[in-house]
Simulated assay, not measured.
Amino acid sequence: MTTDAPSQNRPVVLITGASRGIGRAIAHELAADHHLILGGRDRDALESLVSELPSAEPFVADLSDPASLADAVGALELPHGLDGVVHSAGILVSGTVEELTAEDWTRSFALNVTAVAELTRGLLPALRTARGTVVTINSGSGYTSGAAGGAYSASKFALRALTDALRAEEKEHGVRVSSVHPGRTATDMQRELRSFEGGEYQEEDYMRPQTVAATVGLALRLPADAAIDSLSVRPR
């Protein structure tokens, strides 16, 4: 059964990039005991996912458009605050420094960093009310970079700096901030990356999205006396 309002006693969590990949896996991971606000740009895809879950609603917004994002946040009804936000939406911009344009760099940072900061800023009052948890889906590229990955890695390094700053700023308000760094995961983004690298995509070589989702569930469900600051999870 689907509802437009949180089921009684369910923590409320907003997930961006919820219609596919890791974001979708996170929605299914949390569905049994959370009310979910599912973020994305494709209303039909979100409504389809909502219909699969016991307590969920769509959050349709273009994260790269501050005005659209502000309108969507303003329309949320969160009388008891927000227990968590999971920033799963992201973009892969590949290419060497020689190849990439200023527009490529701007596009990478706009979704992977600026949108995260702007959405979090809009949700901070509700997160503080509930003493909620912010989870960012970062990457192994948030620690190291390789050839032709400069724009993506730079944005993920910046996202790590953002979460470190936010964690320090929000400690007095009781908001937890967790940075999850998955290694290579079997998603459409990984398929795109392997195509760019000229390599073969073999799903069995990578972690399942459900594995990453389980680590996010751990960060959100952790008892209130502790927090996961940063968690790196790699293919075994």
Score class of each variant (00 low, 15 high):
E98C: 03
E52P: 11
R10V: 01
T114C: 00
L100M: 12
T133L: 09
E29I: 02
D65R: 08
V116T: 14
D225L: 03
D229V: 14
T144R: 13
R234S: 12
G90P: 03
L46T: 04
T133P: 06
Y201H: 15
E77P: 06
N138D: 15
V60P: 01
A168K: 01
A213K: 05
E118V: 11
V73P: 04
P223V: 12
R10Q: 13
S195L: 14
D33M: 01
R41F: 05
Y201A: 06
L124G: 07
A31F: 01
T215N: 10
V85W: 04
G132E: 10
S232H: 13
R167K: 08
V233T: 11
A154G: 15
G39R: 01
G23Y: 05
D44Q: 13
E197R: 10
A31G: 11
S153N: 11
S153Y: 09
A214L: 02
A147E: 14
S88Q: 08
Y152D: 11
S48H: 12
D42W: 06
A32W: 02
Q8W: 12
L231Y: 13
A115C: 11
L63R: 05
T129W: 03
S230Y: 09
H35R: 03
M1T: 13
H87M: 11
V216N: 00
G174T: 04
L78E: 07
T136V: 15
V13R: 06
A126E: 05
G17E: 09
E98D: 14
R24E: 15
A219D: 07
R176E: 02
G39H: 09
D44Y: 03
V97M: 13
S7M: 03
G174Y: 00
D229E: 14
R20L: 07
S94W: 10
G198M: 09
V134C: 11
A89W: 04
A70V: 03
R24M: 14
D33L: 01
G81P: 02
E77G: 12
G199I: 04
A45W: 01
L119T: 02
L231R: 00
V86D: 00
S153D: 08
R131A: 11
V113R: 02
G142V: 07
V97R: 08
